[in-house]
């Protein structure tokens, strides 16, 4: 499909097209390049007379050493991996069962359930934060990995939505023949549907992981102890220090962008699928 409409529109696009494309790429990439350069500059140079030179005068790894040794950025990355990993695993399981039921079973209140899922994805996150905070204080769950549970309010709706679309695309005939052969609902799901739905499930896992990795409000409110800081929270605390050391900010930004970059490079196809199926495709 791509090929034939591209062919139709291709002719006639000359240099304005290329300029726009290059401009776009430069704007996207430039901040990262600049941060990378800054991360190797000495503090004196960043604030000095010539703060905008492209090549660091005396390249240094000091900022990287500082954020790793003093600011515990590796610990934050570890916390983020734990929190996002746990969230991804349980959300994928819960969403898969729910989406399968929505797609395959006939039950009362199905549209209400879907409506609620859609509504939850729309309402402001601020609305859950007060009660969740008080609940966690009462239960003594602040500064712990229990924070993964309220992450469901931001990850579950999207996961269910994408998976329902996926299951709807898998033909019923396969499952019906499995049922005729006497398989239970769980067996059908496990042996027939899962393998077929694997790409969709994987897409959901990636999107869920990224969403959980990027979550900020719950993390900064509930896990305020620096031992439990996730990446976004740890990064935001570099800003609110008494003095802002841009060299450390730059080094930290580069370090925490690496995991994201790896995920994007490896799974860009799944990400794009997830993004577009979460919206509209057909």
């Amino acid at each position: 499909m791509m090929a034939n409409n591209a062919g139709a529109e291709k002719k006639g696009f000359g240099w304005p097209f290329w300029i726009m494309l290059i401009f776009y790429l430069v704007i996207i990439v430039f901040p990262f390049i600049w941060i990378l350069i800054t991360s190797f500059k000495q503090t004196g140079e960043i604030y000095g007379n010539n703060p905008f030179s492209i090549i660091p005068e005396n390249p240094t790894m000091q900022h990287y050493a500082d954020v790793i040794m003093e600011k515990g950025i590796l610990r934050a990355i570890g916390n983020s991996l734990i929190v996002s990993g746990v969230t991804t695993v349980y959300i994928v399981i819960v969403a898969t069962f729910a989406a399968y039921a929505i797609s395959r079973f006939d039950f009362r209140g199905k549209n209400i359930l879907l409506g609620i899922v859609l509504a939850v994805s729309m309402f402001p996150q601020m609305i859950v934060i007060g009660p969740i905070y008080n609940l966690f204080i009462d239960l003594g769950w602040t500064n712990s990995y229990w924070i993964t549970l309220p992450y469901s309010s931001i990850t579950l709706p999207m996961a269910v939505w994408i998976l329902v679309t996926h299951f709807n695309q898998i033909p019923l005939a396969l499952e019906e023949s499995a049922r005729i052969d006497g398989a239970s609902a769980f067996q059908t799901l496990y042996k027939i549907v899962f393998p077929l739905a694997a790409p969709g499930v994987f897409t959901v896992a990636i999107i869920t992981f990224i969403t959980a990795w990027n979550e900020f409000v719950l993390a900064i409110t509930i896990n305020s102890n620096s031992e439990y800081h996730t990446v976004p929270v740890a990064i935001s605390f570099l800003r609110t220090q008494f003095e802002i050391l841009w060299g450390q900010v730059a080094a930290a930004t580069i370090l925490v962008t690496i995991p994201t970059l790896v995920i994007v490079l490896l799974f860009q196809r799944q990400i794009v699928n997830g993004l577009t199926q979460g919206g509209v495709k057909e």
Binding site: I210, N214, F216, P232, T253, T257, T260
Partner: peptide, 12 residues
């Protein structure tokens, strides 16, 4: 390239 700004945390 397009996915990277979207994928990094907003706080970052």
């Amino acid at each position: 390239t397009s996915l990277i700004p979207w994928a990094i945390p907003t706080a970052v």
